[in-house]
Every structure is written in structure tokens, then in C-alpha cells.
Design a protein around this nucleic acid. Sequence first.
DNA 1: CATGAATGAGGATTCATTCAT
DNA 2: AATGAATGAATCCTCATTCAT
Lengths: 189, 189, 189, 189
Amino acid sequence: MRDGTKTKEKIERIALRLFVEKGIAEATIRDISSAAGIAEGTMYRHYASKEELARSLFSKNFASFSREFDRFQKELSGTRKKIEAMVRHFCAFFDKDPILFSYLFLHARHTQASFVEPKDPHALNILVKVIADGMAGGEIPERNPHLVASMVAGVVLQVATARVYGEINESLVELSDVLVVTAWKVVKG
Amino acid sequence: MRDGTKTKEKIERIALRLFVEKGIAEATIRDISSAAGIAEGTMYRHYASKEELARSLFSKNFASFSREFDRFQKELSGTRKKIEAMVRHFCAFFDKDPILFSYLFLHARHTQASFVEPKDPHALNILVKVIADGMAGGEIPERNPHLVASMVAGVVLQVATARVYGEINESLVELSDVLVVTAWKVVKG
Amino acid sequence: MRDGTKTKEKIERIALRLFVEKGIAEATIRDISSAAGIAEGTMYRHYASKEELARSLFSKNFASFSREFDRFQKELSGTRKKIEAMVRHFCAFFDKDPILFSYLFLHARHTQASFVEPKDPHALNILVKVIADGMAGGEIPERNPHLVASMVAGVVLQVATARVYGEINESLVELSDVLVVTAWKVVKG
Amino acid sequence: MRDGTKTKEKIERIALRLFVEKGIAEATIRDISSAAGIAEGTMYRHYASKEELARSLFSKNFASFSREFDRFQKELSGTRKKIEAMVRHFCAFFDKDPILFSYLFLHARHTQASFVEPKDPHALNILVKVIADGMAGGEIPERNPHLVASMVAGVVLQVATARVYGEINESLVELSDVLVVTAWKVVKG
DNA sequence: CATGAATGAGGATTCATTCAT
DNA sequence: AATGAATGAATCCTCATTCAT
């Protein structure tokens, strides 16, 4: 590697993009390796299989996102503040890397359901927990926390989707005030 | 056909299920035909290709849903009533046929984006229009109608997703009161 | 059949055309039956298989042509007259039915070699015999009669081919004087 | 490659033989690859499709033959000499590689018509030109040069065909004196 | 680490043929 | 005789993966 980019990083960056653009099944090893400027066989120096590449791309990033997500809310107190921080974190993360965001959150869940290790921290679960805690603490009305978390998540994710498909032109950070307010309304019931 | 079920219907029912369960790329013609109890070649009497099957399954049902969806709101006046009717229609539709609902609304948009004919009525666009009309009529505050529509749609779709994955146990119809109230809050801003 | 055309004739006419246009392997039963306006299964009322159709089309017409060809020369005396009659017969036959001519004489011989029954009269063999007789009778110089017959046949067949592909615009009958003279020169050595 | 034969060459040699023996449509990828001792998939590293293989086999060899053919006649002056050189070249080429000759010149023209690039030099056209030039120069009588070229070509091609099918036992080179004399008679009219 | 030709199982599709109506 | 839906073997082709260099 004379260009200073490590092969593995190149593979991951390209694979991520192609998985999102075409889908995991439709993006071939040849697509990825040729876009990455490496030989097909070279992929297998770094990943045992295409599935492992897809899975690793997911787990690694998903876990790291979830950890950060978790830390964020832990440092704050008050459900309102936690929710706000989470929404803003989502928005910032989307704007920073929409492709990774799409890979982690917008793709058919059935594909990636199998990628989530139960032991890993899971962003959605953290949201559920924050909401459940808020209910337990009397800050927000008691309801099924999964239901409430889904509604909140839906607000943000669907806006992200609309942004990906060009139906909305603002960045998510620009929209984050609206999203925070809306998320809180949803949580407050 | 001795069992009174027409081959084409059998193909469609099975294909829909397998496309949702495994994904379009992963569901093979052999999977579909063997589950349908027919020969592989028989598929091609009814559909020119697997892609045409997937596309037709989408367009036909999507268009018919959207038309119904449209009619529903047209018969009512007042943004609140229209939104309520739409949310309830979504919920009822989900409960009646969760597999079809998943195929139409929960799958990777990039796959099916190409399936939507621009001329067809489109459920999301109808929602956008209802919201835009409500804003024009002063019933709800002025904002980007695409943004508001996305947030509303997200609430319902993410709950549907959670239901599909067993994170929520109630039927969508049981949840529709909550969803209507939440949707309206989101719209009112 | 209300249009007075018998199904079998319709099949044969269409099959002949498609076999010549696309090749036997490339012309499908569906092509033929749909062009003939009948059902696919109907073919099998008249022919046991596609191969039998191709073979029968060949043998029947080839044998009938060869018989006529044979009679023609038998009725004449003198090699020159026989050759002339044969060439003119070829030309007239081509003009009358270029598609049938192409099927019988211009298609890959390997395909149709297997169609010729050794016992059947064979146009080329008749030509060989006429030439051999002419040599035996001292009318034309002694050479390998197969060689001479091939050269003569080549003159006519290649002109027919050129005509089929539009490289020549005159009908074969219009060209038959030239062809007769040339054929005779070839035979005379 | 341990046997020193390159895969691509092996494919081409075998494919050529099978295309001639069985026809392009009838020779399957499996036939070719198994005769070549390679895997089916290996074909596709070298050719995008069976059709591309057939086409490339044709174009490459046809163009190279035609160029040589052209050069040959250009170096000579006098129609008689040119014709003689061309006929002898055909004969030598046939004897050197009867399979390639058959593939290029004896197969159903409709199959390979589409393989000829209009810009490529074309053996038949060269013959037409030589004849047309001879007419213009007063060396041979004026007639439709396409007609004369067809007759000359027919003489040689039909003898080649007879040789392929074992109706003639001499090699074409052995027959070339006769063919040259005959061709010239045809041209002289 | 990197290469890329070779592999071969598996997938979509075609099509001659059958058969119940 | 005619139909045309159904069949399934056979075909072309793809692509994840292996391995000799």
C-alpha cells in the first residue's frame, strides 16, 4: 500500500457503499474488489466470507454506535434531556455518515436481525430503557415502553429515509430541533 | 387444478411470503415453486421472470392499496378526520395481511423504489397532500409537508415493524387509538 | 378449419420459413405454432416431434424434387441437353420457392445430412451420374465425376445464395442462360 | 497450466471443432468445457457468452484470412494471376485447417452474416473487386461482377464441401490446378 | 499479504413434450 | 382433432470461494 490507505479500510468503505446501494446479495465480491482496486482473492485475506464482511461491518459499527449512544444518555439526567441527546446524536451521526447510518438502521431488518448479537448493546433497547425509566420515575405517562420507543424511533428513521431519497433537502442536524420537539411530544403521549 | 386454487394465485401467495421472509434475491424460483407445489417452469407461464413477479406483486397491490387509501380520505372532510382514517386504514390493512404490508412498506426502499410507477397513486404522496391541504386551510401549522408526513408515517411504520419482529404483542388495530392520537400530535406540531 | 387451409399445411409452410430464417434449433415450437395460429399441442397431432417435422419437411420435398429432377434428364438425350435441363430446373425451382430451395440446398449440410435416406434419389447423385455417363460416352473429358459435379453444383448454388442475400438482383431464371453456359464450360473442362 | 497449453487456446480449438461438428446452437457449454478439460465457469473468464465466443472465433479468423487474401492479390498484377493466387490460397487454407475453413465459409450464412463487421475486409468482396477491376481493364468480359464472383466462389466452396463430406478424396491443393483452370474459364465467360 | 485464473454448485430461464379437458 | 397449462430436463450463466504462484 503506497497510497497510505490500508486495504482493509478500503474494502470496508467500498463494501458499505455497495451494500447500501445495491443490497448485500446484489453486491458481488467482484463489484467490491474491483471498486476497491484490489484482486478478488485479496478479500479473503481480510474476511473469511462475504457474509462475514457484511456481519462484521454491521456489528462493529453498530456496537460502537450503541456504546456511544449509551454513554451519551448516561451522562445526562432527566428523560427529556436524554431523549434530546439521543435524537441529536442520531441526527449528527446521519449527517456525518449517511451510508453507514443507512446500513445500520434503514435496511431490511430481516437481513441484519441475525447480525445483532444479543449481548451487544443495542441502540433501540437503550431507548426503550430510557423511556421505561422515565415512566418508572413518573416523568412520562406509563405505556408500553416498546411501543413508545418504536414511535419515537420511527419519527427519526423515516425522516432519515426521506432525506436519503431526496424528499427532504435539509440535513438532519438542521431538522433536529423539530425532531426533538416531536419526539418529546410522542413520549409525553 | 383439482384443488380449486388457481396456480397464479398460489404462486403469488407463496412468493409474497418468501420474498418477505428471505428477501427477493434470496428466495429462489425453486423455493417458490416447490413451496407452491408446482414445477419450476410453470412459473414462467405466469410471469416472464422473477423480477417481473416481484414487480407485479408490488405494483398491483401497492396501487390498489393507494387507491383505497385515497378514496378513504376523500370521503371525509377535515384534516384530523382524514389523518385518523388513514392511520386506521393502515392498521387494519396490516392486521389483515401483515405479509403483504411488510412487502409493500417495510422492505428496503431501494429495491422497490424502481417498482413504483410515477403515475400510480402513492400512499405517501397522498399523506403529503392531505397535510399540505391542512396547512393551506390553516388547520395545522405551516411546515415542510414532506417532513411532517415522514414523521407521521414513521410512527406507524416503525410500530408495524416492531410488531412484525415480536417486540410488541398487540395488533395494530388495538393500538390504533394511540397511533391516531400520536399522529395528530405530530401533525399539530 | 374454416379458412380452407389445412392445419398441417399451415404448419409446414410456417415451419419451413422459420427453419430457414432462424435455423432449426433456433425456431421454437412456440414460434411456429403461434405464427401458424394454432396451439402448441396441436403440432403433436401432426408430427411426433420437432425433429420429425424438420426431417419430414426435408425428405418429402427433397425426394419429390429429386424425382422430378431425375425424370427431366431421363427424357432427354445428350449430356449437354441434360445439364442444361438440370440447371434450368434448379433455377425455376429456386424462383418458385426460394424458401424451400434454401431449406433443401443451402443449409448446413451437417444438419440435414442425417435427413437424407440413402435409398432416396438424390439430386447431386443424379448430376454425378449424368456426368459419369457423359464421360463414359466420350462426350466430355474423363475426370473425377464427383469433382466435376461439385463444381457445377457450386456455380448454381452460390449464385442462389447470393440472390438470397440480395447481392444479386436478377431472378435465377433470368440468369439461367449464363448459368447454363458456365456450367457447360465447367463440365467440358 | 501445467501442460503448456493456454486455456483460451484450448477453448477456441475445441469450440471451433464442436461448432462445426454439431452447429453452434447444438454445441453446449458443457460439451466444450468438458472436451477442453476445464470447468464450465472457466469459459466465462475468457468469453462473456457462448455467442461472443462464436462471434470472436469468426471475426478474428475471418478478418485475418481476408487480410492475407487481400495482400496476396495486391502483390500480383493481372487478373489471371490474381485469381490463380486466390484460388490457391483458398485451397492451401482449407488443407491446413479444414475445420476453421468450414467454420468460416461453409456454415449457414444467416448465422454468421451478423458476425461480419461491415468495416472488416471480406474475402468475397475482394474477389468481387478483382473481377470488377479485370472488367474495367478489359481483361475479362463485362458482366455483373457479383454474379461472376459468386460462380467462381461456388466452384471452390462446393468442392471443399464435397471434400469435407468424403465425396472427394484428394486434398484441395492436389485439386488446385483443376480449380484454377475452371475458375478462369468461369471468369472468362 | 496479494493475485487472478480456475472452480463448480446453484440459480434463472427455455422449450420440447405431455395430458386432462 | 385441438387446446394450452403444466412439466422437468437441459441450458446458459453467476459468483463466492480456492489455490498455485
